[in-house]
């Protein structure tokens, strides 16, 4: 367990805050850390921007623990970090990539864009959000040299509709050689299927309830193969993810019971 003081807190969007920590983490894009808030919980969190001296955790209010983090954590407070863990995104040999970020799944896309643009890979970012206020890191992606296209549910900015509509248009151009996505699972299912339709590889980043974070407890295993999201993932080839019966359908709670992706009881007919 590494313990750090929070150096800076940034309000990014409604219900999303970034916490900057002074430490060279050396994580690869797509890897995650377990973040410990003493007396509350320890949760897996993707890694946002990284430099030689700092890393950023951009945390969306998504449950009891993250709500408490937003409420209680400020500059100078200590948090515990285990990791980085998991298999990262890979981009060997890629020249023209598209990143699809939806809501709170956008931070790992930021780190991926950082590394990809530094390698000279043409990077197009498709951002989705409920309103223009919910679009994350547009400016940062631009500063990194990415081309940006946005979609909002209410049409307050960019395309009115799904971010996956924008992906279809990009894929129709026929120049893309890999699609990367992190965000709501149903969005990722659509992204993986679209990429498959266009015969283009995709990589998706899954999220499941985790305990150990390093592949021994079995809490995050996915039905179909029993692969571990924390160790064999969180990044999976889209084609492989699609072969898992639970992808886009259900997940498990702390007891191991199957629950819906929204955290509610599962429809027994699934």
């Amino acid at each position: 367990m590494l313990v750090f003081k929070i150096k800076k807190v940034i309000d990014e969007a409604p219900d999303v805050k970034s916490y900057v920590i002074e430490h060279k983490l050396n994580a690869k894009p797509g890897q995650f850390v377990m973040v410990w808030m003493p007396g509350v919980d320890e949760v897996p969190m993707s890694i946002g921007l990284q430099t030689d001296t700092e890393f950023t955790l951009s945390i969306a209010k998504a449950g009891d623990c993250t709500a408490l983090m937003h409420e209680k954590l400020s500059v100078g407070d200590k948090i515990g970090i285990r990791g980085p863990f998991g298999k990262p995104f890979t981009f060997e040999g890629k020249k023209n990539i598209v990143l699809v970020g939806g809501g709170c799944g956008t931070p790992p896309m930021l780190n991926l864009a950082q590394v990809a643009t530094a390698k000279g890979i043409k990077t197009t970012v498709l951002l989705g959000g409920r309103t223009s206020e919910h679009l994350l890191f547009e400016k940062t992606f631009k500063e990194l040299g990415c081309e940006i296209k946005v979609a909002t549910d209410d049409g307050s900015k960019g395309h009115k509709g799904y971010v996956t509509d924008l992906l279809k248009k990009e894929l129709e151009k026929g120049e893309v050689d890999c699609v990367y996505t992190c965000g709501p699972e149903l969005m990722m299912v659509t992204v993986a299927r679209l990429a498959q339709d266009f015969n283009i590889p995709s990589q998706v980043s899954l999220e499941r309830f985790m305990k150990c974070g390093f592949g021994i407890c079995g809490q995050c295993c996915i039905d179909g193969t029993g692969l571990r999201v924390c160790k064999d993932g969180p990044v999976f080839d889209g084609e492989i993810a699609l072969k898992h019966q639970e992808f886009g359908k259900y997940k498990r709670d702390s007891a191991g019971l199957m629950i819906g992706l929204d955290g509610c009881a599962l429809d027994k007919n699934l």
Binding site: I216, G218, C221, G226, G256
Partner: peptide
């Protein structure tokens, strides 16, 4: 017991 035993698929993977 206690390792990778939450699901049947995980046990089969072992």
């Amino acid at each position: 017991s206690g390792y990778l035993g939450v699901t049947g698929a995980s046990l089969a993977n072992c």
